[in-house]
Simulated scan of single mutants.
Amino acid sequence: MALQPSLRPLLIAGRPDAPHTLDVFLDYVCPFSGKLSVALDTVVKPLVDGGKYDGKIKVIFRNQVQPWHGSSTFTHEAGLAVARAAPEKFWAFSLLLLKKQGEYYDIPTSSLSPIQIREKLAGLADEAGLSQSQVAEFKDLLINKSTPNGGVSVTDDLKYTIKFSRQNGVHVSPSVLWDGLLANEVSSSWGDKEWNDFFAAKVTV
C-alpha cells in the first residue's frame, strides 16, 4: 500500500493487508467527485467492510487538487489536517465537505481571504464531530509558517498527494486506479449493479 505513515487515515475502507487496492482520486470541489463519494459510502464500503469483499479490497482516498478551482488547495489542506488531528473523522469530514462543496465553489469563495476560508472549514470540522481540542489542532495545522513562503504544517502531505497523482498520470477527478492501473471505465454514475459487476470481474483472490 503506497501511503506514507501520516496519510494512513486515507485508507477509508478495507484492511491494510487486503490484496486488491482501489485508489479513488477525488477533488472536494468537483461535483462528479461528490456524486462518486455517495456511491463509495453507500455501495463500496458495505461490500468491503464486513461484506462480500471483506479482506479482499482496500479503498484509499486520494486527494486530487484541481488548481483551476481557487479553493481546491484550501479544502484539501483541511482534509489532510483532519487526517492528522482526528484520523478517525477523516472520512466523515470528507463526506460532509463533499456534500457541502457548493459553499466552496469559485464564486461563493471569491470574496473570502484564505484565512476566512480556513475558518469556515474549521466550522465544518466542528460539524463533522471533531472535539474542541481536535478543532484547535486542526486550526493550528493550517496556520502559515513563519517563513514567507513555507506553507502550513500539512504542506508536505499535500505535496506527497500531488506527486502521487502526477507520477500515475492522473489529471482529472474523479479517477480510479485498480491495483495500480487506471480504470477508466469507472463512472461517478455507477450504482450497486455496476460496482458489483466490476468487483466480480476484477477480484481474483
Score class of each variant (00 low, 15 high):
F198Y: 15
A78P: 00
P31T: 12
G191M: 05
C30A: 07
K120W: 06
K58T: 05
F198S: 06
S165V: 01
A18Y: 03
Q64T: 00
P19T: 13
G123E: 10
A2F: 10
D41H: 15
K100A: 07
S37F: 11
Q4V: 15
L121M: 12
S189W: 07
E194V: 08
V38Y: 00
A183T: 05
I60P: 02
H171D: 08
Y160D: 06
Q132S: 15
H171N: 14
W91H: 03
P19E: 14
P46A: 08
V203C: 08
G129M: 10
S146C: 08
K100D: 14
L130W: 05
A183N: 14
N168W: 00
L142Y: 02
A183W: 05
F198L: 15
V186K: 04
P67L: 10
Y104N: 03
V59K: 05
M1V: 11
W195E: 05
A39G: 11
L36W: 01
L36V: 12
N63W: 00
W68S: 10
S131Q: 07
T109K: 08
E194S: 05
K52C: 01
G102D: 07
D41G: 15
F164E: 13
L130R: 09
L182T: 15
V154L: 08
T21N: 02
L7M: 01
S6H: 02
P87I: 02
P9Y: 00
D197V: 12
A39K: 09
K100Y: 08
K163M: 13
L40R: 00
I162L: 14
T73F: 10
L97S: 03
F74D: 11
T75V: 10
A13L: 08
A183M: 07
Q64E: 03
V44Y: 00
K193I: 08
H69E: 02
E88Y: 03
L40G: 02
Q66H: 09
V65Y: 00
D23L: 00
M1T: 13
S113K: 14
Q167V: 03
A85P: 02
A122R: 03
G150I: 13
I57D: 01
P87S: 11
Y53L: 07
S94M: 01
E103K: 15
P108H: 04
T155N: 06
F61T: 01
K52F: 02
Y28H: 12
T21A: 06
Y105G: 12
F164L: 14
L124I: 12
K202C: 07
Q4H: 04
H20L: 11
V205N: 15
A13K: 03
L98H: 08
K202T: 06
K100T: 13
N63Q: 12
L158D: 01
I57Y: 01
Q64V: 00
L40Y: 01
